[in-house]
Design a protein around this nucleic acid. Structure first.
Lengths: 138, 138
DNA sequence: CTCTATTTCGTAATGATTTCGATTTATCAG
DNA sequence: CTGATAAATCGAAATCATTACGAAATAGAG
């Protein structure tokens, strides 16, 4: 946590209560959350907080590489604390957003890049229901 | 084309001009298109067409497994004619939506599914700029 | 040609995200 | 500690994609 705050300070960014809280929630939850989930949690502490604050800070944290964003197949943007640096992919629970690392990376496969194609990124995710969610009734 | 129309007919669906046109455009373009791109193209022929028609027909075509939908990282839903059946993934051009098949599938890798996790789908995409777009100035 | 379920149109509603002006606040120099 | 100021927040309105709905039009069956 302190490491994150230092990183923000180093960029000349201010450590507001709202900003700390967003980080605390993301750290505690350790899973992909929607902006609305964050909003609901934040309102417990800041009843008058606005979406502007939520989205602005998510963007800031993303710019600082502190959080990751993923667009789920249902069209919802979700955010989570960026995990330990070594490159990896995830199993993702479509119900609660929980993630479990996958050690393997598909770029290890023999993939021949088409002539002239300029690769910038890749995405590999396995979706389903985690052990907890699949035992709970829908 | 006729095969698609037959498939629709068999489901008791009507072959309206609008529905044919959407199919024709998707077949001709052979890439991921946004609803808006389709709307713009459709307006050339049907100046009074509404988004309701676009989205409703995309849903119909998707239900009939005639088209595929993919949520891009920028949050835009894109649609394309479903390609030849064998399961595969894509290189995707982030500028024009062009797709190039990848033969390999990451599920061939030794991936150990976590205890209790119920896999429903997976996603693997390599993003970048296609040969054509990377030569054109931004 | 007639009938009817389906489809379309035009428009309004929804929901997520972005934007903006006015106000407040964290930080820092003195 | 205090005042200055750039950054951040609030509250509300704007935007954008998508969905929904009632009334009118139409494809296809008989």
């Amino acid at each position: 946590m302190e490491a994150y705050l230092d990183r923000l300070r180093d960029q000349g960014l201010k450590l507001t209560g709202q900003r700390r809280s967003i980080l605390e929630i993301l750290l505690a939850e350790d899973r992909y959350m929607t902006a609305k989930e964050l909003m609901d949690r934040m309102q417990e502490q800041y009843p008058h907080i606005s979406y502007d604050t939520i989205y602005r800070n998510l963007r800031v944290l993303h710019n600082e590489h502190i959080i990751e964003e993923s667009m789920f197949q249902d069209g919802s943007s979700r955010f989570r604390i960026r995990c330990y640096d070594p490159h990896h992919h995830h199993f993702i629970c479509t119900r609660c957003g929980a993630t479990i690392p996958i050690e393997a990376c598909p770029m290890e496969l023999p993939v021949s890049v088409p002539e002239g194609f300029h690769v910038s990124s890749h995405r590999f995710e396995i979706f389903g229901e985690c052990a907890h969610c699949s035992t709970v009734t829908k």
